[in-house]
Design a protein around this nucleic acid. Sequence first.
DNA 1: ATGCTTCACTGAACCGGTTAATAAATCCCT
DNA 2: AGGGATTTATTAACCGGTTCAGTGAAGCAT
Lengths: 339, 339
Amino acid sequence: MRRPTIADIARRAGVSSAAVSFALNGRPGVSEHTRQRILAAADALGWQPNTAARALSAKRAGAVGLAVARPARTLGVEPFFMQLISGIQAELSERANALLFHLVEDVEAEIGLYRRWWAERRVDGVLVVDPRAADPRPAALRSLGMPAVLAGGPDPEGILPGVWIDDARAMARIVAHLRELGHQRVAHVSGPSGLLHTERRSAAFQAATRRGATGTAPTAVTTDFSETEGARATRSLLAAADHPTAIVYDNDVMAVAGMSAARQAGVAVPADVSIVAWEDSTLCRVTHPTLTTLSRDASRFGATAAGRLLDLLDGEPPTDVEFDVPELIVRESTAPPPA
Amino acid sequence: MRRPTIADIARRAGVSSAAVSFALNGRPGVSEHTRQRILAAADALGWQPNTAARALSAKRAGAVGLAVARPARTLGVEPFFMQLISGIQAELSERANALLFHLVEDVEAEIGLYRRWWAERRVDGVLVVDPRAADPRPAALRSLGMPAVLAGGPDPEGILPGVWIDDARAMARIVAHLRELGHQRVAHVSGPSGLLHTERRSAAFQAATRRGATGTAPTAVTTDFSETEGARATRSLLAAADHPTAIVYDNDVMAVAGMSAARQAGVAVPADVSIVAWEDSTLCRVTHPTLTTLSRDASRFGATAAGRLLDLLDGEPPTDVEFDVPELIVRESTAPPPA
DNA sequence: ATGCTTCACTGAACCGGTTAATAAATCCCT
DNA sequence: AGGGATTTATTAACCGGTTCAGTGAAGCAT
């Protein structure tokens, strides 16, 4: 059976197709009485707008894109992304937009994808995640003239509006918790230095621990977020005689791997060393002991970012949104340091 | 700057827009010489088809949908889905299609989404995952006339073509491995009974263990795939005097939780009980001991399913595709049973 | 009654492709 | 050379919406 079109509605309601368009989009040009008649007809026919036709004439695809340049392997274990996507979709659906989701190899491929999406008019704008140092994406998007919102940090170049979580104060909160327990030597196992949020956390860690620092001991180790490097970093940190009594990991996978590595090295958790993970996930609750973690509301974060992007598409001015400090969930992996 | 259209190409090459359309789509109606001239012009202008215009006239959206009715929480920890999506996208990109990805609450919402996607002509077809017992989706899709491929099993009703992995033989392979090690009492912690692949595995487990079964001991426990129920099931299985010496879990999260629960109950892995997980992931390698798992090639699986759907859209007849048996990766969590 | 504005609605162009119908040019065969 | 088939190209309609210029008719003040 053929899908009903605007012409069918017009015929049924005895008006022109232009009047139908006005009525369906809630714009002036038809009387209230006629509008009701048209809406009733549309409803009776079960009409839904053909997105292609609408996109073609209104020059609005009704869809936004999300490209993620991370290996699928890494993505899978992080619940953060699915929560993020879930939040994004809640907001998009609410406002009748669809999400084009794409995994890409690297930032270059991501820019290529943006170029294609834009040329094909597949999307009206994109959500950019994982901002990096010297990120080529904002400039590329500006040169394309493509609306975008940066989810994960303020844009250092000030090109794209951003939505982000206050990593610095979150880190301060973690260090404060460890200080309260009595820890003096705290270490940080961070993610790759290219990512802005990682760098924000590292800087905040340095600032928060500076005062009580223990001379020349290496207190920060950079990794690629993988479990392998998380374990390796842990072993090297615990090898020193006056090793740290607490370690903060930039994600959950590394924290779990680190805990395993500590145990194998004969270091008890939390008796000898306390452990804090950066993301709350199932992983943090199935381990023994359960992990103290920093918990962010990824879903709300995604919804806000998507909302800002749609606002932007509706012509509202670009603005930044900074979230509250995430909550620290204290579980069994943190305790006072050994006497 | 305005995007180039086929009218621009036509002007540049000195032909009509119809000739350009023929040339760009590789169909007869233009000479080889003219075709080259047109392609050169298109290339020079950096032309890309406007998907909305193409969708409107060719009645083909150039996009397929993937709706997933699982809580975002569960999805996140399973690397399977990201690998699946990655494979799907590789195939779709190859053939110039986009992926609309959507998380939904339940199967009813999923059907509602299909209805909307179809009415709006957003997608040309969908990939249906997680087939269930008495699944309403195939019939709903048939009544819509919407092309679809069922990823995860043959359609019991025979409505949709399916792509799936041979769960039965995979389970047989696991049980064979445990038998070779000498295990007599093997248990199965399965997922929810509503899912077809879960039921296939359970049936295969029963068949494979029937001969050596130990009287009335409960050898199978049904769960919701969560770490909580995985741990609970493990505790109840190990409580019996002649508890099983090996447990097969239907996913990785439950296996990890089960291992933790066993340790807390004073049962050593693998000395007292062997553990096998159904999905290989980072999780299975960061634990101590590392987990013996069944490893499927989710990426290739996704690519195949997407390929079948595109073939279907191209008018090819619907056919089923069954994959080879997945590989069993033996690690540290399986060993001979205690003497 | 006249002129002017406002309101409700229509007709037609337009978005950027695809495609059926048609016409012109070329080829082939007797 | 003549007539039909084939190749190459064009014209124009069409997909299903949006939007703008234009047309009556009603409302209002003078």
